[in-house]
Amino acid sequence: MSAALLATQSAATHLLAGPVTSTGGGETFLFWVGASISVLGALGLIFSKKAVHSALCLAGVMICLALFYMAQGAVFLGVVQIVVYTGAIMMLFLFVLMLIGIDAPESLTETIRGQRWAAVLVAVLFGAILIGVFAHAKLGPFAGMDQANAAAGGNVPSLAHLLFARYFWAFEVSSAVLITSALGAMVLAHRERVTARRTQKELAADRFKRYSKDPSVIVTPMPNPGVYAQHNAVDTPALLPDGSIAQLSVNATLRAQGEVRGITPLPVPLPHEAADGDGASPAGANGSGRHEEVGA
């Protein structure tokens, strides 16, 4: 308790004293926890097989970075990091992931032989060079943000004074960048319809024309996914009359990923249970579970 108090006190004196060579206990704790989480998250981003998991790992890294910003006196940036990055940009990523779907896992064949190991080597060397540069640079003591933040009465007003005075031109240009990118996204995502939209009648006629040449073409609508008492989910396959699984009843994406849920066969009704029924139910042989429910 007293140690923690001492740590906060020393942190406070550090913050007040200006130049910092060592942070307080709280920030040290935050750094080591956040640094390990963010490095693990970055590794998860690179090595997870599913793109959605990568996106979640990246969101975790970004939240850790937001905490670091706040701990370093950049409160506004920390909040913006959470709102803009984890809130808007990552959701945009997830949105696009949903749009284009994940139909096939990434191919692991190397188009350039040995490229993967070469990439690891290059990245390790690059990181070593960066760290070496930081280690050898004469960085000097940290001045701390308190004086700069207090100049206009807080982090946000001080930033605003800079942004709308010295960096005003850059700020205006960034608005042009944003408008251009919004227009660009609209142009890129827009699809011009070059042929008239085909009506349902034409589609049906076309389907039957194909059926006349190839009997394996399905002319009826696809079967719905099976919804049983066991699972109320789209990955549950429907059953054919002979009890086998109708593969077509499950979405092609789920089939490609091998995520079709298996079914546990329903219990076969025993002869005396079927005879026990009130006789009014015509579904005597349909399944003992349902029958019992009706009887109770």
Partner: peptide, 21 residues
Amino acid sequence: MNPDSYLYLSAILFSLGALGV
């Protein structure tokens, strides 16, 4: 902890991002 550690962390994260690319 020296505040320089943030710089080392940023170097590590940057290299990991480059590795992923």
